[in-house]
Simulated assay, not measured.
Amino acid sequence: MLDNAVLAILEKFGERYEIVVDPDNALLYKQGQKKDFLNILAAEEIYSNAKKGERHTSAALKKVFGTDDVFQIAQLILNEGELQLTTEQKRKMHEEKRKRVVALLMQECIDPRTGAPHTQMRIEQALEEAKVHVDNFKSAEEQITDIIKKLIYVIPIKMEKVTVAVKVPAAYAQKAYGTLRSQTVRKEEWAANGDLIMLIEISPGLQGAFYDRLNKLTGGEVQTKLIGK
């Protein structure tokens, strides 16, 4: 094995299938960021025990996978199996996933006492206090509900959308229409004078950016009002 290579492992029908891969390219491929399989395999072999150099026979591979093509089997192992990560990869992945979780909590949740989103610092402190484990192999979206269930014991927090009434003058209505429709529209109405009136559902943490965008599109002439949750 190469010094910097790692294993990808698949267990199938009671047998173990291992490939030796470049850690960075293999991770990019498994995450869908690398589409081709170039420069991934460090050794063009399918092992039963890579450390001991024990390989599967061609006949054994054909029996299980229907082929003995190393690249076809290796892709399946990497897609369906477990990729061993380096210490640095684990650290970096954890940092990135934790940042995404914090950003999502700020975007989607509010303090029910005030109706405002929590600050980044408060959410990070709450994650520590609640001893929340962030799973590196699940998306932030998949974990967010379970994380909130733990956070409610240390801070008041609730996932909720807010409703905003928006009125855009006729002169800017077409220009702003796409931005408005990018959110959840509860009601849309065109006034006799051409003004556009909408009720928009939006994540609390996106309000600031949403208002800024509308103000730029309308020269500051848009009218908005937070009307409820």
Rank of each mutant, 00 (worst) to 15 (best):
V70C: 08
N25A: 14
L151N: 04
H118P: 03
A103R: 08
I110M: 04
E54H: 14
G194D: 06
D3V: 11
E11S: 14
D69K: 09
D69H: 04
I197H: 07
L28V: 05
A8R: 11
E201N: 04
K97V: 00
E188L: 11
T119N: 12
G81P: 08
R55I: 07
A176P: 00
N39L: 13
G14Y: 05
A42H: 11
T57K: 13
I9A: 09
I123V: 15
A5H: 12
I200C: 00
T218E: 05
T86Q: 09
Q33I: 13
A191N: 13
V164N: 03
Q31K: 15
N79I: 02
G208S: 10
I73E: 08
T224K: 06
V164Y: 02
I200Y: 02
P169S: 01
D69W: 03
T57C: 09
K97W: 00
D3G: 11
I155S: 02
A59H: 09
I19C: 07
C109Q: 06
T67S: 13
G220F: 08
Q174N: 13
Q223E: 13
K131L: 12
K97R: 15
L41E: 08
L10T: 10
Q89W: 12
E18N: 05
D195F: 03
N4Y: 15
S139F: 01
R186Y: 08
S48H: 10
M159G: 12
P117H: 10
A5K: 05
P156M: 03
E18T: 12
I147P: 05
C109M: 07
L61E: 07
G228R: 04
G205S: 05
L38E: 15
P112L: 03
L85Y: 12
L217N: 04
H56C: 06
K225F: 00
R122N: 12
K51F: 15
R55G: 04
G14S: 07
L10A: 11
I73A: 08
E80W: 11
S139L: 11
F65G: 04
D195K: 07
V21I: 15
H56Q: 04
R213K: 15
F137M: 12
D3T: 11
P156E: 05
H133A: 14
L27T: 08
K150G: 03
Q120T: 11
V6L: 09
I148D: 06
L151S: 01
V154I: 03
T114V: 06
R213D: 14
V168A: 10
R16G: 10
E44N: 14
D36S: 13
D195G: 02
L83T: 08
P204V: 00
I200A: 01
K229T: 02
D68W: 03
G32I: 13
A59P: 02
H94R: 14
L2D: 14
S182C: 07
P204I: 00
T86H: 06
G81D: 10
D24W: 14
R91N: 13
Y172N: 13
Y17F: 15
A5L: 06
V185G: 08
A173S: 08
Q223V: 12
L2Q: 14
P156G: 01
A59F: 09
T218L: 03
G14P: 03
L83P: 03
T163C: 00
T67D: 01
P169N: 01
H118R: 09
L196S: 05
T163G: 00
A173K: 05
